[in-house]
Amino acid sequence: MSFATSSAGEPLREINTTPLIDVLLVLLVMIVLTIPVATHSLEYNLPSGEVTGAQPNPITNVLEITPEGTLVWNGRPTDEPGLVTLLGQVRAMKPEPEVQFRPDANASYRASARVLQIVKASGVTKFGFVGNEKYGTFSRGN
């Protein structure tokens, strides 16, 4: 084994980095070994049976809010308790039909937020916003 020596009292110019690299590799191995194994899984029910083609939803329900704050379900006025009942019926259907939300441009934001809270609490999974493309461009007021 040879050692680097300096002549005439000069400082040592070479540093032996092998022990440093060995220690770093050991630490890296220890860190990798202590990381927990990923045991998280995602539950997903895959369709079973033959699929013959896309089948449309048998019923599409439209939920609207008028500028006066009236809730309209498929063209018929309803109130919040009635909406809760209707959403419960939709949730119980197999397959679950889509509920389309179409608030009027002048409808109250508070009423829209309240309806969204009711829909979220009902557990309906097929819910969509429709008709928003007409609000993509706003006209300037005079």
Rank of each mutant, 00 (worst) to 15 (best):
P95F: 01
D22M: 06
G136Y: 12
A8K: 12
E80V: 10
V119A: 04
T85L: 10
L24G: 09
S112T: 11
V124S: 10
V23M: 12
K120A: 12
D104S: 02
K126S: 13
G136Q: 10
P95L: 00
P97V: 03
R13W: 09
L46V: 15
E96N: 05
T85D: 12
N74G: 00
S2F: 07
T17I: 14
H40S: 11
P36Y: 13
I15T: 09
I59C: 00
D104M: 00
T60E: 04
W73E: 03
E80M: 11
D79H: 04
T60F: 01
L25Q: 15
V51D: 05
I31V: 15
S112Y: 14
V124W: 02
K126Y: 15
R140N: 09
S112Q: 11
L42R: 09
D22C: 05
M1D: 14
A121L: 09
S112M: 14
A107G: 02
P11D: 13
R140P: 06
W73V: 01
P56G: 08
M1P: 08
P11K: 13
G53W: 05
P95Y: 01
P77W: 02
L86R: 06
V124E: 02
G69K: 02
T60M: 02
T39Y: 11
L83F: 07
V115W: 06
V32S: 08
R102E: 14
V23H: 08
I15Y: 07
Y109Q: 11
M93N: 08
P81Q: 13
T70L: 06
G69I: 04
L86Y: 07
G88E: 00
T70V: 10
A92R: 06
P47S: 10
F127R: 00
V130Y: 10
L12R: 14
R76D: 12
S139T: 14
A113W: 09
P97E: 06
R110V: 13
V84K: 05
W73A: 00
S7A: 15
E98A: 08
E64L: 00
S48F: 09
S48Q: 13
T137E: 06
R91I: 00
G69R: 01
T34E: 01
E96M: 06
F129P: 02
S108I: 02
A111K: 15
T66W: 02
S108H: 07
R114H: 15
V130L: 06
N106A: 15
D22A: 14
E98C: 06
R110E: 14
P56D: 05
A4W: 14
A105T: 05
P77C: 01
D22F: 05
L46C: 10
T5E: 10
E50T: 05
I118D: 04
V29L: 11
L71C: 03
I21E: 12
T60G: 04
N74C: 00
F129T: 04
I15G: 02
Q117H: 07
S2K: 04
N132Q: 15
A107Q: 07
